[in-house]
Every structure is written in C-alpha cells, then in structure tokens.
C-alpha cells in the first residue's frame, strides 16, 4: 500500500480525481448547498415557524410514520422472499427473481397510476376490499401500499447475497449439537443476516421518505390526513413560496444525511461480519 503512495505506477490520478471532484461539486454539492444558503435568508424564528406549522408537522408524521411501517413490512416479507429464492427450488424461480427489481425499473408515475387503478373502488382488488370496509386508494393506506411497493427490492437484494454465502456446515454443526431448525434460525442464521437486514430496512426507509411519484396518485393528498412532505414542498413551489419550500427541504436533507451516514456504517458492519463468517 505505502509503496504505491511513494511512487505510483499507474497514470491519471490527478486528472481523474480532479475531474471527479469538479463534476461532483458542480452537479451535486454546490446545488445542494443552495438549499442551505437560501434558508439562511430566514431568521431562526421564521425558519422554526415554517417547519413547525401544524400542516407541515402532520406531513412529517405521515411521511416518516408510513415509511417506517412500509420498511418494516419489507423487512419481514423481504427476508422470507430472499430465503425462498436462495434455499428452495420451485418452477418460475428465475423469472420471479428477475422481477424483484421491477420497482427499481418501473417509472414511479407508472407505478402510481397502476396501484391506484388496482385499489380504486372499481379496480381488481378494490372491488373486493371496499365492500369489506377497507378503502385503500385515496387514503393513508394507499400511501402504505405505494411505499411498500417501491421499497420491496432493497431488503431482498441486501439479504440475498449474504444468505447465498452462508456455509451449510454452520447449520449442520448447529444441528449436530442438538439445535432444532427454529433454534438454528434464531441463534445462528438471523444474527449473521442482521446487519444486511438492517441495511435493507434503512435503504427502504430512506427511499420511502423522499418518494413522490408513486404516492401522489394513490394518496388523495388531503392536508393533515394524507399529504406527504415532498408534496408539500411542491405545493409551496407552485405558490411561489420558495423560502417555505426550501425550509422544509432543509429538514428533509438533514434527515437524509443522517440516514446516509447511518447506512454507510451499517454497510461497513455488514461487510465485516460477512468476512468473519
């Protein structure tokens, strides 16, 4: 390592690093700093008044609360999904595996209108659910469905490779020491999967909090009931309230940064525990 520091054999370091830093600054860092600079035109009291207004606070509760719930649903079902894909053999498995990434590939607006049509009163699922008193489209429940959809691949794709790397001998050893399958799962397999599972959960959560396209069609967008924070930013922009939009964006950005560093830490932990096993 230190050898290459003293005299590098490979060329192009100053050029590539320089270009990387310039492009990163121009496209990402400087534009993002605009949000913070703009919000500084507000006094602290004004800033606080905007971000703690009742309609804004209720949008946080909806966005963060439902995102958390959707990520939790994905953690449970994503784990089962990854388990079934890695451990069992059944027809159609390869196609199902490929389609897991559909929420990444399908434009969010398409997902939004498709889910709305599916769960509306006359939709394939809505016509069965509504007589049961379960209204999904145009309610907070619709937001949950959309956020579960877009977060689905994260847990599956983070847990799957770890599960594939798991040695069979580990579980054989547990069995030969007298553990039943349940004990082996809870005491041996789950601890190894935990870092990946938490990473997937955090990624799904982060994505859901910022999500816009798939939610707005199905949410109904009633202030205080089903209005998400990203929509509130758009609403303020449409009213030419740039300062208001920016103040709320600062709250979301700070939260995203915290989550990003948390996810980074989780990934380092996940990689370490993978190497150890």
């Amino acid at each position: 390592m230190s050898r290459s520091k003293t005299h590098r054999v490979l060329p192009g370091f100053p050029l590539t690093l320089g270009y990387t830093l310039v492009y990163l600054s121009l496209v990402v860092l400087i534009p993002l700093s605009a949000v913070f600079l703009k919000s500084m035109s507000l006094s602290l009291e004004e800033f606080w008044a905007i971000i703690s207004a009742p309609r804004v606070v209720s949008s946080y509760k909806i966005s963060f609360g439902i995102s958390l719930l959707a990520a939790a649903i994905n953690a449970v079902f994503g784990l089962i999904f990854a388990w079934v894909l890695v451990r069992y053999h059944f027809p159609g498995k390869r196609i199902i595996d490929a389609l897991v990434d559909l929420p990444f590939a399908l434009p969010t607006a398409v997902a939004g209108i498709a889910l709305t049509a599916l769960y509306a009163g006359n939709g394939w699922l809505g016509q069965w659910l509504e007589p049961l008193g379960l209204k999904v489209a145009f309610t907070p429940l619709g937001i949950l469905v959309a956020l579960t959809f877009i977060g689905l691949p994260f847990v599956v794709r983070t847990v799957q490779p770890v599960l594939e790397d798991l040695e069979m001998e580990l579980e054989e050893a547990a069995a030969s020491l007298g553990a039943d399958r349940g004990q082996t799962f809870w005491r041996v397999i789950l601890p190894v999967l935990t870092p990946a599972l938490l990473t997937g959960f955090a990624l799904a959560f982060a994505r859901a909090v910022g999500e816009y396209g798939s939610v707005i069609f199905i949410a109904g967008n009633v202030p205080m009931v089903s209005e998400i924070t990203p929509l509130l930013i758009i609403t303020k922009l449409e009213q030419y309230d740039y300062v208001g939009a920016t103040a709320i964006a600062v709250v979301m950005l700070v939260f995203s940064f915290i989550l990003l560093f948390l996810i980074n830490g989780l990934q380092i932990w996940a990689n370490r525990s993978r190497v150890r096993t």
Partner: peptide, 30 residues
C-alpha cells in the same frame, strides 16, 4: 489509488440516492 478522504468521497457520490427527487428539482430552481 490510495488517498485520504476516499471513504468520504465514495459516500458523497451516493448522496443523490438519498435525496428526495423533489429536492433534486428544487435545487436547480433555486
């Protein structure tokens, strides 16, 4: 290559993934 701040740079490159698309539009409006 090895250099200081490599981990931070890698994290910063991932930054756009954790920013809401709505904010991605907003920054250019600002």
């Amino acid at each position: 290559f090895n250099f200081r701040g490599k981990q931070l740079l890698t994290t910063l490159i991932d930054l756009p993934f954790s920013v809401s698309p709505v904010i991605a539009g907003l920054i250019y409006v600002l």
